[in-house]
């Protein structure tokens, strides 16, 4: 749905750009291609790693680790799993819902969802290349700490 909106919005922008200045638009598209080509190897590496990981660590395995009564250890495991894996949201949310229905704790799921979205161990080399080591370390570490806090807040509130 939102991807469609994005496409339409960009198509409109492109059209306006084309009407306003053909040469500039051509330059823009050339830049688009060049910047895409520049990070293509990194994209491919990430995609390959995710593919391999998901073939070994399936949903069942994740369920077992985050199961009911796993307590603080469960939160930590959820944090690690969420940080390492790169599962798209539309897979992660139904999976989380299924886990919750099967007795997993809210705190564990919150830690999993939060770290999944904010922490990217697999993408660290890419992030490092773009923003430098310091930013990458601070961002990922603080995101881990934040996910832990969110887990406890949500465990207490819900």
């Amino acid at each position: 749905m939102f991807t469609k909106i994005l496409y339409i919005a960009v198509a409109v922008c492109l059209l306006i750009s084309l009407i306003k200045d053909k040469k500039k638009t051509k330059k823009a598209l050339f830049k688009s291609w060049k910047s895409f080509e520049k990070i293509l190897p990194q994209f491919l590496v990430i995609i390959l790693i995710i593919g391999m990981m998901l073939s070994v660590v399936d949903e069942e395995t994740i369920s077992r680790f985050l199961g009911a009564g796993s307590g603080f250890l469960g939160v930590l495991i959820a944090l690690v799993v969420g940080s390492i894996t790169l599962i798209p949201g539309f897979v992660a949310f139904p999976l989380s819902a299924a886990l919750l229905n099967n007795g997993a704790g809210v705190a564990q799921i919150a830690a999993f969802v939060s770290s999944l979205m904010m922490v990217g161990v697999v993408t660290i080399p890419m992030e490092q290349k773009m923003f430098g080591t310091k930013v990458t370390v601070i961002r990922n570490l603080s995101a881990v700490a934040f996910s832990l806090i969110v887990a406890f807040i949500m465990g207490a509130v819900l």
Partner: peptide, 8 residues
């Protein structure tokens, strides 16, 4: 769309 937007 993401990269076209980037270029624009």
């Amino acid at each position: 769309p993401v990269f076209i937007l980037l270029g624009l």
